[in-house]
Amino acid sequence: MQIVLWINEKKVNAEAAPDMLLIDFLRAQGCSSVKRGCESANCGLCTVFVDEKPVLSCAMLAVRAAGHRVVTLEGLQEEAEGFGAYIADQGAEQCGFCNPGFMMNAIAMFRENPDPTEEEIKEYLAGNLCRCSGYEGQMRGILSYLAYKKEKGAAK
């Protein structure tokens, strides 16, 4: 069936089979940052925003996104660069395959809770698996990004 939705602020009018998952729909629309790591909603790689809330796009039908605003990492390049630089400075991006889902959820966390504790960070991102980094480098990157934001805020 034909659905209308917004992908990264752009209105999209496209065909979606009733059983098509949002992840496949988005990839077909050119949002290749959206990755699949499992079939059981366990890995977090496919995280996107639907109406500003992080969701697993592998666990949502494309048709259910009709009329909604979907954002993928393609639509958040500036934020991704700003925060991502701190991950890159740790070498924690590693293979990178989990990065888009991790970045999306981290950005969601920063918006929701600009000053999280280490425990809160771990809790919030618990659903984002990474097999390469051991998570420590990601944590260091997040903490130094938060420190930088704080410093910048204080300077204002």
Binding site: A80, G84, I87, A88, E93, C95, N99
Partner: peptide, 9 residues
């Protein structure tokens, strides 16, 4: 690194 964190294809 930057291309990976930004989710580039």
């Amino acid at each position: 690194a930057m291309s990976l964190v930004c989710g580039k294809p």
